[in-house]
């Protein structure tokens, strides 16, 4: 049974690592543009959420909406880095494709942190929200530190 679970998990992770946005019609540039768009969506939601988290802008129920936006875009992280898409303006480092398991781990940390942030916003507890947002930021920073060009 243990073996079976192990193989099931292993098979699942391989699929997760390999699944990506590319279809027969996708050019490398399309893949890059798509990635930049998804990252811009993430950055927009995070920037907006931070203003509410810091108490600089009224919540009015929108923090939860931004948190869900972040979590939704974060689920795409594992599919927006197809191999060969480090073209043109890409800021992705080759390390992403050299160590796919480590990269997949880093991505799942971000996904978990995004889900935890959604849960925190639903609780309405400001301290918990602040903590979850910091954790989320830490996961972004961790990945950018390792896998994004330094500039």
């Amino acid at each position: 049974m243990k073996r079976l679970i192990f193989f099931a998990i292993a098979a699942l992770s391989v699929t997760t690592i390999l699944s990506n946005i590319a279809s027969a019609d996708t050019t490398r540039e399309d893949a890059l543009d798509y990635r930049i768009s998804v990252m811009t969506v993430l950055r927009g939601h995070i920037g907006a959420a931070s203003k509410i988290v810091r108490g600089l802008v009224a919540d009015d129920g929108y923090l939860a909406a931004h948190a869900e936006g972040i979590a939704a875009a974060a689920t795409e992280l594992s599919r927006i880095f197809p191999e060969g898409s480090d073209v043109g303006e890409s800021e992705s480092l080759p390390l992403i494709w050299e160590e796919p398991e480590a990269f997949a781990d880093a991505i799942s940390k971000s996904k978990e942190a995004a889900t935890a942030f959604v849960t925190a916003t639903q609780s309405g507890d400001r301290a918990a929200i602040g903590k979850a947002f910091r954790n989320l930021g830490g996961s972004c920073r961790g990945c950018h530190d390792q896998y994004r060009v330094k500039n």
Partner: peptide, 16 residues
């Protein structure tokens, strides 16, 4: 926390 006002998180040496 390393976030610039536009929502980006730094990953350069500044992260360290």
């Amino acid at each position: 926390i390393g976030m610039s006002p536009d929502g980006d998180f730094t990953g350069s040496s500044m992260a360290d």
